[in-house]
Amino acid sequence: MAVTTLPSGPFGWLSITWRLLDYWITVYRRTWRGSVFTSFLTPLLYVVAMGVLLGGFIKTPAADLDGASSYLLFVAPGLLAAQTMQLVFGETTYPVLGLIKWHKVYASMVATPLTVSKVVIAQLGFIAFRIMSASVVFILVMTPFGVFSSVGGALGAFFVQLLLGMAFATPIFAYSAALQSEEGFTVIFRLLMIPMFLFSGAFFPLRNLSPVLEQIARITPLWQGVDLTRMLALGTWDTPSALVHLAYLVVLSVAGGWLAIRSLARRLAK
């Protein structure tokens, strides 16, 4: 019998989105080897080079390091959040434009019962999986260095990466889906990712910046993630500021998700 109905209701919606699982499994099977190697080795190199070796030269009292008793403990959570950001920039720039432009994969997906929102959400699901697997590895690598004051803190830091990742993934997806050429990526790599990586409190306390720059750094998405991850790792949880960070990241994720779907729908309707 031919298809006359589609699964309906909230679970029907999910079950249609779930139809993209095999696509992403197949893609991952072709690419996981490279990503596993880098996601294990990169954190180790960073933690050793910056935390242990560079940190060996830094003798600053805990009060000046946001409550961290050594530079290693200060920088490691920052590196985790920064890694999440970089991974998401990688997953939502060239791959998105590639699926639009070079291989027309999205176009072939929406020629089926799938819709744009389901295609976007399935891909965000894949990115969430990538963030989770990279974060688990990073957290496990950091644990022997005594970076986490508690198991709960490590677990919390894991979930913060997921939220931080989505807060970056959705607006960048929206941006990439609207781009005509990949030159637009150079702009956001240079003007957003690298400055945020260097100046959003991953490597030094924000108070070291001039007052104006400090305020700018405090409104970046990465700072919200860095501060949350650091508070959880060090056990210096401060509920009011944590709630501000969490609300910021949730709003950015949801607004970005709406924009991403709209942006890709416009692109594919042309």
Binding site: V3, L6, T112, T115
Partner: peptide
């Protein structure tokens, strides 16, 4: 979606992955 479930589409440019 219901219409597309019963169509087969071969676009002008190959969109194979």
């Amino acid at each position: 979606p219901l219409i597309r479930a019963r169509l087969g589409v071969c676009p002008q440019e190959d969109s194979l992955d």
